[in-house]
């Protein structure tokens, strides 16, 4: 019945995916390959960022080429307080979310006055401003970055210095983010965002001040990405402005498009494919960029709607058209 917001993935695939993620640490221990936990931690954190980008890119048609800036802001929201010996996680994460939201509000207010290529350029320009701001602050290491010696502390509630705990904390965050985005895109607010992507002029003609709704979605998206940044800072323990380089923003767009923009799980799939391919191809050959690029191009050319679209197509073929 619904034309938009298909999750595409059959429900069982989603459940299998989540069970796999939930069981992975056990698998890693059993296989004596603790490194797997790190790999999937990074994957899930980037997936949260990609899901946040998808909210505005996939559902709202706003191609932000500067989303990695919020990752950096979130990471430094953990790093800078930690530098001064403040490890309160509630405070750090609140700073990450609020600072990202504030930056999104100011930059979005300007960027959303433009459309198309100009919007892309302007979001990228703002992201570069954030990047160079952190590069230029010597106190926090400049472009050498900053070491976070202690991870966020949540007053004994949970200890994410333990990688297993961090892993499940991130997994829970990913599930919550997916649930949140799912609710948002189906709500009245989400309908306005999607309608505005389809035909902004018409939306105004029927009575929507679309600008403020688009701006609000931009702020929500930035805030979620800032949260992902705070997770990333905790995970890497070593943060640099380079995490917010425009190339990183481009990769986030790629993850969203690769997985299937405008579908709930698409960005997660895209991120998984991106991170895993990058990881395993680079082990096989140092010239991994070439096959990596070629595979990504093939996916984009031959699967409309990204990997998610491919699954839906396959599902239709073998009669498993069930949608979740």
């Amino acid at each position: 019945m619904t034309s938009l917001f298909r999750t595409g993935l059959p429900a069982y695939a989603m459940v299998v995916g989540l069970l796999f993620l939930a069981g992975l640490p056990v698998l890693a221990v059993w296989a004596d390959n603790i490194f797997l936990i790190d790999l999937y931690l990074r994957l899930m954190i980037l997936a949260i960022a990609a899901v946040s980008l998808n909210l505005i890119l996939g559902y709202g048609g706003m191609v932000s080429f500067g989303h990695a800036a919020y990752l950096v802001v979130g990471a430094y929201a953990v790093g800078i307080p930690a530098y001064y010996g403040i490890y309160n996680g509630f405070l750090q994460f609140a700073i990450a979310i609020l600072a990202s939201a504030a930056i999104a509000l100011v930059t979005g207010a300007i960027a959303l006055r433009t459309k198309g290529v100009y919007f892309i350029m302007i979001t990228m320009a703002f992201a570069q401003m954030v990047f160079f701001t952190f590069v230029s602050i010597e106190e926090y290491g400049g472009d050498d970055g900053l070491v976070i010696d202690t991870r966020s502390e949540f007053g004994g509630l949970l200890d994410i210095n333990d990688n297993f705990t961090l892993y499940y904390f991130v997994l829970a965050s990913l599930i919550l983010t997916l649930g949140l985005v799912h609710r948002i895109v189906h709500s009245r607010f989400g309908m306005v965002i999607s309608g505005s992507k389809g035909n902004d002029r018409r939306m105004q003609a029927i009575g929507f001040p679309t600008y403020r709704y688009r701006l609000a979605s931009y702020v929500i998206s930035g805030a979620i990405c800032g949260y992902a940044g705070a997770l990333l800072g905790n995970f890497t323990n070593f943060i640099t402005p380079e995490m917010g380089d425009w190339v990183r923003s481009g990769e986030l767009i790629f993850m969203v498009v690769l997985g299937g923009a405008g579908s709930l799980f698409g960005p997660v799939l895209g991120t998984a494919m991106f991170v895993l391919l990058e990881e395993y191809l680079s082990r096989i050959t140092q010239y991994w960029h070439f096959p990596f690029g070629a595979m990504l191009i093939l996916v984009v050319i031959f699967t409309r709607g990204g990997i998610n679209g491919m699954f839906r197509w396959l599902g239709g073929r073998i009669g498993l058209g069930a949608r979740s």
């Binding site: 609710r183 189906h186 709500s187 607010f189 989400g190 309908m191 009575g207 929507f208 709704y213 609000a216």
Partner: peptide, 13 residues
């Protein structure tokens, strides 16, 4: 568009 503001994020429209 004519049923109040649309800053409603939770209920399925």
């Amino acid at each position: 568009a004519h049923a109040g503001h649309s800053f409603r994020f939770w209920k399925a429209a």
